[in-house]
C-alpha cells in the first residue's frame, strides 16, 4: 500500500514529482502503461493540411495572412478553417501542415496560457518566449521520431518590439522581416522581400495589408492547394486583431484561351 497520497490519482499530464522532495524517495510512476506502445505507428505524412502562411513586419508591428482551406490530399475538404491562432495578448501563431497537429498545439498553448494567467504575477509570455517554447516542443517531438507535422510562424509585438520567427517539424528556426511557409516560401517570399526589406519601419498598416493581399492573390493563382478566402492578423501595441474571412478579387478571363480550362471546343 502506498501511504503517500500525493501519489494517488494524479492528473495524467503532470510533470514528474512536482510536490515531493527530490531526491530522497524515488516515487513510482503511476501513469498507465500503454500495452500497444510498441505497435503504434508514428506520423509518416500529414493528412488534413493547410498551405502557406505569410507574415511581414511593418512600422507598427507584424501582419500575418493565411487562407481558410484545409485540404484532404488534393480535395478542398474544409473551407472555413482558421489557421491564425492568437496566443495571449501579444502573439499570433500561424500554421501550415497537418491541421490536427495544429489543433494539438493550440491546446497545449492554451494550457500554458491558463497556467500563466493563474500565476497572476504580471509576468506575461511574449512572442519570443512562445516561439522558444514551440521550438523546444517541435525539436523534442522530432527527436522522438514523432514530429508534429507543421511549419509555423510566430508573430508578435511586446514591449515596443516586433517579433517574427519560423519553426517547423524538424525544430528548425529562423527569423526575418518577411517570412512565408509552404508553397509561399517559393512563390510569395521573393515578392514580400522586394516589397518590405529595408522599409520595415516605414510601411503603414494599409501598405502592409496590400502587400499581403497581393501575395495571397498570386498564391491563389498558382497554388492548387490554396483558397481565395483568407484572414489577416495584425499585432501591434494595441494587441491582436484577426479579421473575419475575406475574399480575394480575381479575374479568370485570360484563362478562356487556355487549353484544358472550361468547356473545350475541340
Amino acid at each position: 500500500m502506498d501511504h503517500f497520497p500525493t501519489n494517488w490519482g494524479r492528473p495524467r499530464n503532470d510533470a514528474w514529482d512536482p510536490y515531493a522532495t527530490y531526491p530522497i524517495h524515488q516515487r513510482p510512476n503511476n501513469a498507465p502503461k500503454d500495452a500497444f506502445a510498441d505497435g503504434v505507428q508514428r506520423t509518416q505524412q500529414p493528412i488534413v493540411t493547410g498551405t502557406s502562411v505569410l507574415a511581414i513586419k511593418f512600422k507598427d508591428g507584424v501582419m500575418m495572412a493565411a487562407d481558410n482551406l484545409a485540404s484532404y490530399g488534393s480535395l478542398a475538404r474544409f473551407r472555413d478553417i482558421q489557421r491564425l491562432h492568437p496566443v495571449g495578448n501579444h502573439t499570433v501563431l500561424g500554421a501550415g501542415g497537418d491541421m490536427s497537429d495544429f489543433q494539438y498545439l493550440q491546446m497545449i498553448l492554451d494550457e500554458l496560457m491558463v497556467d500563466e494567467f493563474a500565476a497572476a504575477d504580471g509576468h506575461a509570455l511574449g512572442p519570443a518566449e512562445i516561439h522558444n517554447y514551440l521550438s523546444e516542443v517541435m525539436y523534442a517531438r522530432r527527436s522522438k521520431m514523432n514530429p508534429l507535422w507543421n511549419s509555423l510562424l510566430v508573430g508578435g509585438f511586446k514591449d515596443g518590439k516586433s517579433f517574427l520567427s519560423y519553426v517547423d517539424l524538424l525544430g528548425t528556426t529562423y527569423s526575418a522581416s518577411t517570412l512565408a511557409t509552404g508553397y509561399g516560401a517559393y512563390i510569395a517570399q521573393p515578392l514580400l522581400r522586394r516589397a518590405v526589406e529595408g522599409r520595415e519601419h516605414e510601411l503603414t498598416a494599409d501598405q502592409a495589408r496590400k502587400i499581403l493581399e497581393d501575395s495571397m492573390r498570386v498564391l491563389f493563382y498558382r497554388d492548387a492547394r490554396s483558397l481565395d478566402q483568407y484572414q489577416l492578423a495584425t499585432i501591434t501595441k494595441d494587441g491582436v486583431e484577426i479579421t473575419e474571412s475575406r475574399k480575394l478579387e480575381t479575374t479568370w478571363d485570360f484563362a478562356e484561351g487556355i487549353r484544358g480550362y472550361g468547356a473545350q471546343t475541340q
Partner: peptide
C-alpha cells in the same frame, strides 16, 4: 524552455511548495 529568466516570485514559491510537503508526510 522559454529563453527567459525565471520570475523570482515563482522560484521562491516553488521551494516553498517543496518545503510544505515535508510538513505533512510521516518519515520526513
Amino acid at each position: 524552455i522559454f529563453n527567459r529568466p525565471v520570475p523570482v516570485n515563482r522560484l521562491v514559491g516553488a521551494i516553498a511548495d517543496k518545503a510544505q510537503v515535508n510538513t505533512q508526510e510521516y518519515g520526513r
